[in-house]
C-alpha cells in the first residue's frame, strides 16, 4: 500500500519565548573584538567544572623529565643536522637551529588551542598549551625551564657565531617571539591582526 506522507501540521505550536534567549547568546558568540589586542574572558563556573573533571593530559606531560631533556636533545640534533649541510657556515647553522626551534615551540605552545583529546567537553578550547600548563599558574618550575631554553639558546648562539647585523636581528626577533608570549603579562592576551590571524 502506498501510504501518503503526512500533511504538515495545520497550526505549528508557537513558543512564546525561545528557551535559551538565543539572540543574546548569538550576539555574544558573534561579537568579535575589533581591537588589536584582546583578552580571553574568564571561564564560567560550568567551564571551570569541566576543566576539573579530569587532569589535563594535554599539558601535564611537560612535567616529565624526558620532556625537559628532549628540548636539549632536539636542539643538539638540529645543530648537528645543519652543520652537516656543507652550504651553511657556522652563522647560518646557528641561525637555522634557533629559528627552527622557535617556530616549533611557538606552534606547539602558543599557536594551537584546545586539546587533542576529548576528556573535558571542550573546556580548554580557548586556551593555548602554555596557558593550560599548571592551570595557568605563573613562574612554576616547568615554565621557568621552558622560558630559559630559547633565551639560553640565543645567548650561546650569538656567542659562538659572529653574526652580522642582519642575522643578529633575525635571531633576536625569533627569540622574542617565544619569550614575549611566555611572560605573565601575555597570559590570555590575543593579538588580532586583521586578515592574518583568526583569533576569537
Amino acid at each position: 500500500m502506498n501510504v501518503e506522507p503526512f500533511p504538515a501540521p495545520s497550526s505549528p505550536e508557537r513558543l512564546t519565548v525561545s528557551p535559551t534567549s538565543s539572540h543574546t547568546a548569538k550576539d555574544h558568540r558573534r561579537r568579535r573584538s575589533s581591537s588589536l589586542i584582546s583578552k580571553v574572558e574568564p571561564e564560567t563556573f560550568e567551564t571551570k567544572q569541566d576543566q576539573d573533571i579530569q587532569s589535563n593530559m594535554n599539558a601535564n606531560w611537560v612535567h616529565f623529565k624526558g620532556a625537559w631533556i628532549i628540548h636539549i636533545v632536539i636542539i643538539i640534533l638540529l645543530k648537528l643536522f645543519y652543520d652537516l649541510i656543507p652550504m651553511f657556515n657556522n652563522e647560518w647553522s646557528w641561525t637555522l637551529t634557533n629559528v627552527t626551534y622557535v617556530i616549533g615551540s611557538y606552534i606547539m605552545f602558543h599557536q594551537i588551542k584546545g586539546t587533542p583529546f576529548d576528556f573535558n567537553n571542550g573546556a580548554y578550547d580557548n586556551l593555548t598549551m602554555w596557558e593550560q600548563i599548571d592551570n595557568g599558574d605563573q613562574y612554576t618550575p616547568v615554565k621557568k625551564f621552558l622560558m630559559g631554553v630559547p633565551i639560553f639558546l640565543f645567548l650561546i648562539s650569538t656567542h659562538y657565531s659572529y653574526y652580522d647585523l642582519n642575522l643578529f636581528v633575525v635571531n633576536l626577533v625569533a627569540c622574542l617571539c617565544v619569550v614575549i608570549p611566555k611572560l605573565p603579562y601575555s597570559h590570555r592576551v590575543r593579538v588580532n591582526i586583521p586578515y592574518i590571524t583568526d583569533q576569537n
Binding site: 592551570n135 595557568g136 599558574d137 605563573q138 613562574y139 612554576t140 621557568k144 622560558m147 630559559g148 633565551i151 639560553f152 640565543f154 645567548l155 650569538t158 643578529f168 633576536l172 627569540c175 619569550v179 611572560l183 597570559h187
Partner: peptide, 25 residues
C-alpha cells in the same frame, strides 16, 4: 647596542627565574 640587548635579555631571564610562583585563581 648588541651587548645591551643581550644583557637585558639575560636580566629578563634571571628575573623570571627568581620570581616566585603564583596562581591565577
Amino acid at each position: 647596542w648588541r651587548t645591551l640587548l643581550e644583557v637585558l635579555l639575560a636580566l629578563v631571564a634571571i628575573r623570571y627565574f627568581f620570581a616566585s610562583k603564583y596562581s591565577q585563581d
